[in-house]
Design a protein around this nucleic acid. Structure first.
Lengths: 191, 191
DNA sequence: TTTCAACTACCTACTACTAGGTAGGTACTC
DNA sequence: GAGTACCTACCTAGTAGTAGGTAGTTGAAA
């Protein structure tokens, strides 16, 4: 099972750096040190690998979001944590988060992977909507509009900012794009 | 020269739908009706085609931005026009703008194309920064922070929103992501 | 306690196909 | 006759995927 995890790790890094079309079983083979054909033992098709990839990713991601929600920080603090996830994912501006990488090349994806991708977006917006609803109550985020609109905007913003930052391999572009949103967040906990 | 333009048109559509890795000379050949080898007469390498593509695109795009600036509308009106460009580019949610498509698969691009891409982003941010500076004077956009931060955020927002909308093939997701920004724009001209 | 079948995790050696790109030729126009 | 805009025929390298085989492990029946 160790090989399977190594394959997933290697493939995830590859997708996030170069897109789903940007790596091959041959690439994985070299990196992991098993023959190309043996990869098919673990993932019969590349589509299967893609599905396993986004499934694992979504599981991790939403577990983290659940932790943030349960942290009972203010909406502003939770948003800051959310933004930090995307910032960390950039890894010196070389990678984007898996869903950004997959969104980008959506035509080469199987419908199963595409479904997972849309579920990912929908759940992200749902989570963010809750945060912005909370913000309307605790007042820790200024300049709010409709929660679902703020939520969708926030998702588009972090994903777009990742794209910009990776194109220039420069995380500071991400920070520049997020600065205005971060400025709207209250500095300290509000009770 | 007609074939050359047809090739550029076809390639642009392909890139914006499927990314730079998502189409081949064989695809273009079928669509245009000349043999694959003949495409090499017009564009010796795929990298050359990519360069021609982004060059033409940038020329068109910045000509449009210049027109908007010269229209002497308020900052809000100019921003609305800017957003509309990206919305129109979506084409029923099937395409993203060329720079989003190229940003997404940046590892398969030549350095020349990558340079053009970064120039594109830099000039977009410069243009938007001017608009937000103007907004600070004419007051037609509410809730502004630093112009360069608002500008970078706006670029990230429209690009991210395109990504979301195309993943679901649904333009309304773009509208949902942009709604909060649009709500900040004054409804009528401010003088 | 040995034996044996099934299973896991790999292997070599392929297939069928697609990619971008090239060599060399042809018809037509200026 | 030079240049343009194509053609056929081909090449090399790479793609995902398959066929069939092999060590090593496990678990249960003889």
């Amino acid at each position: 099972m160790d090989t399977r995890i190594s394959l997933l790790d290697s493939a995830e890094r590859a997708v996030r750096q170069r897109g789903f079309d940007g790596f091959s079983y041959a690439d994985l083979s070299k990196e992991i040190g098993i023959r190309k054909a043996s990869i098919h033992y673990h993932f019969a098709t590349k589509a299967d690998l893609g599905f396993a990839l986004i499934e694992r990713y979504a599981q991790r991601f939403f577990a983290t979001l659940a932790d943030i929600r349960n942290s009972d920080g203010s909406a502003a603090e939770q948003l800051r944590s959310y933004i930090q996830i995307y910032r960390d994912a950039l890894a010196e501006g070389e990678q984007v988060c898996l869903c950004v990488a997959l969104s980008a090349g959506r035509d080469s994806l199987s419908t199963e992977v595409l479904d997972q991708l849309n579920r990912f977006h929908a759940e992200s917006i749902a989570w963010l909507t809750e945060v912005f609803e909370r913000a309307a109550q605790d007042g820790s985020v200024s300049g709010c509009a409709l929660p679902i609109e703020d939520a969708t905007a926030a998702l588009a913003l972090v994903e777009g900012a990742q794209l910009l930052a990776r194109a220039r391999t420069d995380v500071s572009l991400f920070d520049q794009a997020l600065a205005a949103l971060i400025a709207r967040l209250a500095k300290h906990a509000v009770h």
